[in-house]
Nucleic acid binder design. Structure first.
Length: 479
RNA sequence: GGCGCGGUACCCAAGAGGUAAGGGAGAGGUCUGCAAAACCUUUAUACGUGGGUUCGAUUCCCACCCGCGCCUCCA
């Protein structure tokens, strides 16, 4: 098996993956806050962890991944109140929307998708542990973590904690804290606010505690990998470390992986610029799920991704090339036999693909291995040097690639239909298409090219592209 | 100011101490009745700038410039 190396934010180095439980990788992923539809930037991060888990599994490792859904925070409480409904009801619909979105992008479901509000008891228990150790204090009914008691604070983000202590930019009016760096574990309820009655008093959890509580509940005290966007490294992940390690005395996470952000047409994504796209916005503009998936995964996760209209076009064309290749493999007739050179060539592509991903999930490198193979096989096919057994082997390789890329088989229309988007062009049945192709073949035979071109145009108007092949058969596809 | 990421051809982007993967786009060509697909050729003599180390750097070191992120419950 290829040695997998991943960049650890904690050490700023590439480190070999070394699971606590051999053969199984336990991952915690910071999931969505469900107060609105997720935007394309969120999906950049989720796409990364999807490629990561798919790759690990392709390497024969078991994956146990937990993703949280933050279904309680200030924005949710406010929005739900404004809508006049409970937070549970309010967040339900956004969770559903999120599930549809990740399905559209072929992002696999984690083994556990957990809601914060289902784990209040776990959080309370964790806060109690911290209280017993004397690491907390109460102020106005809220409970804070005392950072001064955790000397390692700042080890993840390398943040200058002394600089922060001045606290000039910290909102000191809202809560009474002993130290500006301290953070809330439990927040006292404000009048009219949703709250839980618990052993540690009435209130609701702070932002960070849910991740520590749920991660350790499902994955144990020490997890192999924790993923999230770069913005979460501080303060969120830093605080998770403080809470968790202070409670257990053990290392919380071995390897922290942070995905870089996505920018839109060279600009930071922001509501004021109006470039805050949801998946539905993009689908409504005619972009396909596979196009978006390819674009998101084609740029290695630690590199800022510039999400542009031009990039979408390029991604669509790249996917098209790959799909044309697979279609040719599947539908062409090859001479019997196998070509030892070709088989070796395919082996090499597979190992290059794995080597790329094993190198900190370098998707650009992995894709290069795929495209290299595509060109070489196309060339061999053109020359008639590509044989039946080579095709069988090549098809197996494409399946292997697609177990991670998940863009090769065309499920775009189905996925769009699931979200209520109907195809732009009326669909012609396969029978109708075949009948027209037959008619066109007859016209071609009698060299009635006017008629044959008419038929081709008619099909094109229905979004169907024809490809005449050397052996006389006609391949078609939806454009 | 602190911490971090990045600046490679028209666009996206990999890479490593020995002189530049891959994709998209453009141009020319092969094949084809025409298309489409595919293939071939072609598009980086300063890989942000200036120094240094070295036989040799774009790849290592230093400084600087530019873009971006975080340092405010934003993936």
């Amino acid at each position: 098996m290829t040695q997998i190396r991943l960049h650890n934010t904690l050490t700023n180095r590439l480190e070999p993956l070394d699971p606590v439980h051999p053969g199984e990788v336990r991952i915690y992923t910071c999931g969505p806050t469900v107060y609105a539809s997720a935007h394309i930037g969120n999906f950049r991060t989720f796409m990364f962890q999807d490629v990561l888990r798919r790759f690990l599994r392709s390497q024969g490792l078991r994956v146990l991944q937990v993703m949280n859904v933050t279904d309680v925070d200030d924005r949710i409480i406010q929005s739900a109140a404004a809508a006049g409904i409970g937070i549970r009801e309010y967040t339900d619909k956004y969770i559903q929307a999120f599930l549809h979105d990740i399905d559209a992008l072929h992002i696999e479901m984690p083994e556990e998708l957990v809601r914060a509000t289902d784990h209040i008891e776990d959080m309370v228990a964790l806060i109690e542990r911290l209280q017993e150790k004397g690491l907390t204090y109460k102020s106005d009914g809220s409970i804070y973590f005392r950072i001064a008691k955790f000397p390692a604070y700042g080890k993840l983000s390398k943040i200058d904690v002394h600089g922060m202590k001045a606290g000039a930019r910290v909102d000191v009016d809202q809560y009474e804290k002993d130290d500006a760096r301290d953070f809330a574990l439990w927040k006292a309820p404000k009048p009219g606010e949703h709250f839980w009655e618990t052993r540690i008093g009435p209130g609701r959890p702070g932002w960070h505690i849910e991740c520590s509580a749920m991660a350790m509940k499902y994955l144990g005290d020490t997890l192999d990998i924790h993923t999230g966007g770069v913005d979460l490294a501080f303060p969120h992940h830093e605080n998770e470390i403080a809470q968790s390690e202070a409670a257990t005395g053990k290392q919380f996470v071995r390897n922290w992986l942070h995905a870089e952000h996505l920018i839109i047409e060279g600009q930071k994504m922001s509501k004021s610029l109006g470039n805050f796209y949801t998946l539905r916005d993009l689908f409504a503009r005619g972009h396909k799920p596979s196009t978006i998936r390819f674009l998101l995964l084609s740029v290695p996760y630690r590199r800022q991704l510039n999400f542009t209209e031009d990039g979408l076009t390029q991604a669509r064309n790249s996917v098209e090339r790959l799909r044309n290749f697979v279609a040719r493999l599947k539908t062409s007739q090859f001479p019997a036999g196998s070509n030892a050179e070709m088989l070796k060539r395919i082996d090499k592509a597979e190992s290059d693909f794995d080597a790329g991903l094993a190198d900190d999930i370098n998707t650009a490198m992995a894709l290069a291995a795929v495209f290299d193979l595509v060109r070489d096989i196309n060339t061999a096919m053109d020359r008639g040097e590509f044989l039946q057994q080579d095709a069988v082997r090549a098809l197996a390789a494409t399946e292997k690639f697609d177990a991670i890329l998940a863009v090769l088989s065309d499920t775009d229309d189905d996925k769009l239909a699931n979200l209520g988007f109907s195809p732009q062009k009326p669909r012609m049945s396969a029978e109708e298409v075949d009948a027209l192709i037959e008619e066109r073949n007859a016209a071609k035979k009698r060299r009635d090219f006017k008629r044959s071109d008419e038929i081709r145009q008619k099909l094109a108007d229905s979004g169907i592209m024809l490809e005449d092949t050397k052996d006389g058969s006609v391949r078609w596809k939806y454009k």
